[in-house]
Computed example of a mutant assay.
Amino acid sequence: MPHPAREEIRLEGVLHALSDPLRLRIVRELAAEGVELSCSYFDLPVTKSTTTHHFRVLRENGVIRQVYEGTAKMNGLRRVDLDALFPGLLDSLLAAAAHQAARHDEP
Rank of each mutant, 00 (worst) to 15 (best):
Pro2Leu: 10
Pro4Ala: 01
Ala5His: 14
Ala5Glu: 13
Glu7Asn: 10
Glu8Trp: 00
Glu8Ser: 07
Glu8Asn: 10
Arg10Pro: 00
Arg10Tyr: 05
Leu11Tyr: 04
Glu12Ala: 11
Gly13Trp: 05
Gly13Phe: 05
Gly13Asn: 11
Val14Pro: 00
Val14Gly: 02
Ala17Ile: 05
Leu18Cys: 04
Asp20Asn: 11
Leu22Ile: 10
Arg23Met: 09
Leu24Val: 09
Arg25Lys: 15
Glu29Arg: 15
Glu29Tyr: 14
Leu30Asp: 03
Ala31Gln: 11
Ala32Lys: 15
Glu33Pro: 07
Glu33Met: 12
Glu33Asp: 12
Glu33Thr: 10
Gly34Glu: 10
Val35Ser: 10
Glu36Asn: 10
Glu36Tyr: 06
Glu36Gln: 12
Leu37Cys: 03
Leu37Asn: 05
Tyr41Phe: 15
Leu44Phe: 02
Leu44Cys: 08
Leu44Asp: 05
Val46Pro: 05
Thr47Tyr: 06
Ser49Lys: 13
Ser49Thr: 12
Ser49Cys: 05
Thr51Glu: 15
Thr52Asn: 15
Thr52Ile: 13
Thr52Leu: 14
His53Asn: 11
His54Glu: 12
Arg56Trp: 10
Arg56His: 14
Val57Leu: 13
Leu58Pro: 04
Asn61Asp: 14
Gly62Leu: 07
Val63Ser: 09
Ile64Trp: 04
Tyr68Cys: 00
Tyr68Glu: 12
Tyr68Trp: 12
Glu69Gly: 10
Glu69Tyr: 10
Gly70Val: 06
Ala72Pro: 04
Ala72Glu: 15
Lys73Glu: 08
Gly76Phe: 07
Gly76Arg: 12
Gly76Met: 08
Leu77Val: 06
Leu82Asp: 03
Asp83Lys: 00
Asp83His: 05
Asp83Gln: 03
Ala84Ser: 09
Leu85Glu: 03
Phe86Cys: 01
Leu89Arg: 02
Leu89Val: 04
Leu90Asp: 01
Asp91Ile: 03
Asp91Arg: 03
Ser92Met: 13
Ser92Asn: 15
Ser92Arg: 15
Leu93Phe: 04
Ala96Ser: 02
Ala97Met: 03
Ala98Thr: 11
His99Pro: 00
His99Val: 11
His99Phe: 10
Arg103Met: 07
